[in-house]
């Protein structure tokens, strides 16, 4: 028996219970995390590699600190905690890797399946990434502090007030927005470029250099520090500055810079996305 049109009208959105979209995005994170947790060996290996890396860097910095004036600007333990925070936040949580997901889906045309779902495809991809990397990130947050306490001891956090801590929480959120928008935008370049990898590589290297992957920002020359601090790369790495007492006078301006970069990059990402949607035909139409 065929359903009558009136019967059909009763279905669909009207019959469905409205729930918060936030819950849907949390479900995406959860599903993605579950999918990744199937690979427990990778998780354990990832954490082990981070501990070894921090141990090696601790040994190298110990020698460097013994022969340089760096110890006067940033305590040894704080430098190591800062680097570990960088590894966990930038490398393991790896929001920059959203580029790879977007780039792949655009080039293979999978994006067309995503855009006809009743959710924002860009947020979907970011949530997928957070779910995928979230477990390892959480594991790092537990294991790395223990390893650091053993290798270098506790950091000196006497400089931090409650308000500063709140500012860092805000900075962390803004850093995630800036990184997501920046690398999503580069990923969307795949709509126009046959190979967007070179653009990504440039941004990625800038993130590594200006984020403090090789040398903590506090150890860079003063003028460079200022330039880096207020750049989007500096904003992305700002949460790792938690252990740098010198940053406190700049905290307010850094939050403002983060807000400004977030607004600009989200706007830019949205404009690029709108233009990209009109280019979707090139990728499988």
């Amino acid at each position: 028996m065929k359903a009558t049109p009136s019967k059909l009208h009763e279905r669909g959105v009207g019959q469905l219970t409205r729930r918060s979209s936030l819950r849907t995005y949390l479900d995406i994170i959860r599903a993605s995390a579950r999918e990744d947790s199937a690979n427990a060996r990778r998780l354990v290996a990832g954490v082990a590699v981070s501990v070894i890396r921090v141990g090696l860097i601790a040994a190298i910095y110990k020698v460097a600190y013994a022969h340089s004036a760096a110890r006067t600007s940033l305590p040894y333990a704080n430098a190591l905690w800062s680097i570990a925070a960088y590894f966990a936040f930038i490398l393991n949580l790896g929001i920059r890797n959203v580029f790879k997901i977007v780039d792949r889906e655009v080039r293979t045309g999978v994006v067309e399946v995503g855009v006809i779902k009743p959710i924002d495809w860009r947020l979907y991809k970011i949530c997928e990434l957070l779910g995928k990397n979230g477990l390892e990130f959480l594991a790092q947050l537990i294991v790395l502090p223990i390893a650091l306490l053993i290798f270098v001891g506790a950091p000196d956090m006497s400089h931090l007030t409650f308000l500063d801590s709140a500012a860092f929480v805000l900075l962390t959120l803004l850093a995630m927005i800036v990184a997501s928008a920046m690398f999503l935008t580069v990923g969307l370049a795949a709509f126009w470029l046959q190979d967007a990898q070179p653009v990504y590589r440039i941004l990625d290297k800038l993130t590594l250099v200006f984020g403090g992957a090789f040398v903590p920002i506090a150890l860079l020359p003063h003028a460079t520090q200022i330039l880096v601090r207020y750049s989007p790369f500096g904003v992305y790495a700002a949460p790792t500055q938690l252990f740098n007492p010198q940053i406190l006078p700049s905290l307010g301006p850094m939050v403002l810079a983060a807000v400004a970069w977030s607004a600009f990059l989200v706007f830019l990402c949205d404009r690029v996305w709108q233009r990209a949607m009109s280019k979707i035909e090139v990728n499988g139409g």
């Binding site: 469905l16 219970t17 409205r18 199937a38 399946v113």
Partner: peptide, 23 residues
Amino acid sequence: RSQLIFNLPLTESFRLTASMYRV
């Protein structure tokens, strides 16, 4: 083009789809 979650049981894909479509 599959719309299922590759490494998880089917039930997980169904659950996520239901969530996306607010069932």
